[in-house]
Amino acid sequence: MPLPTAYSPNYYSLDDILATQERTPCKFLINVPKMGNLNPSTIEKDLPAGTALELPMWLVLEMSTGRQPIVLPELPKIYKEAYREILEADACAVDLHKFNLYFYELGSYAKRFDRKGDVHQTLLHTFRTRFRQLMDLADNSISDPSVQQRLDTLERRLFKDGYNARTKLNAWLVESGATIEAANMVINHKKRKRLNMEDLMK
């Protein structure tokens, strides 16, 4: 069994790249020549100061640091006051997927734009409150895919860990032998081949 490690993104992490593609609003502080194509609603060649756009997080992070920042970043609306209050009221009832697929990841980056540190508190509070619900979902072992719909990516990963562990435990409690099994990839590979064959024969 491979050593299970917690999610810890690095340069090569696919999920971190996907998370930093999410958009965040920002305002341009200076004129930027020849970058008009960043703004889809105009055909001007240059980008005048004062333009407000929603750009991917990776770009906003690069542009807002340094001695002469090009943009002033703002919090995405899901981390603003109104949404934070919804989370404070009842974090468990919220469909976090609808807020953002990468709620916690994006929030970890976006909270740099919040002077007061409220976003940081909200992220932690939301995670802690929803953890019990997550554990219960994983323990009940219903392989109902729709149950994961309301979770964001971080929670889904934890759910998968918990669900796999619980399935193995249940299998152990019931069975009496350590059967050697076909590898997961092999099973999925065969399933995919069968589905492809069925499609071809239709």
Binding site: P4, A6, Y7, S108, K111, L123, F127, A138, L154, L158
Partner: peptide, 23 residues
């Protein structure tokens, strides 16, 4: 103890990550 692995240590790792990321 094994029943709460790996979900508990992973969850605590994530909380730590959120806490430790730069403000």
């Amino acid at each position: 103890i094994n029943t709460i692995r790996p979900i508990l240590p992973h969850a605590l790792d994530q909380i730590y990550r959120i806490k430790a990321s730069p403000r």
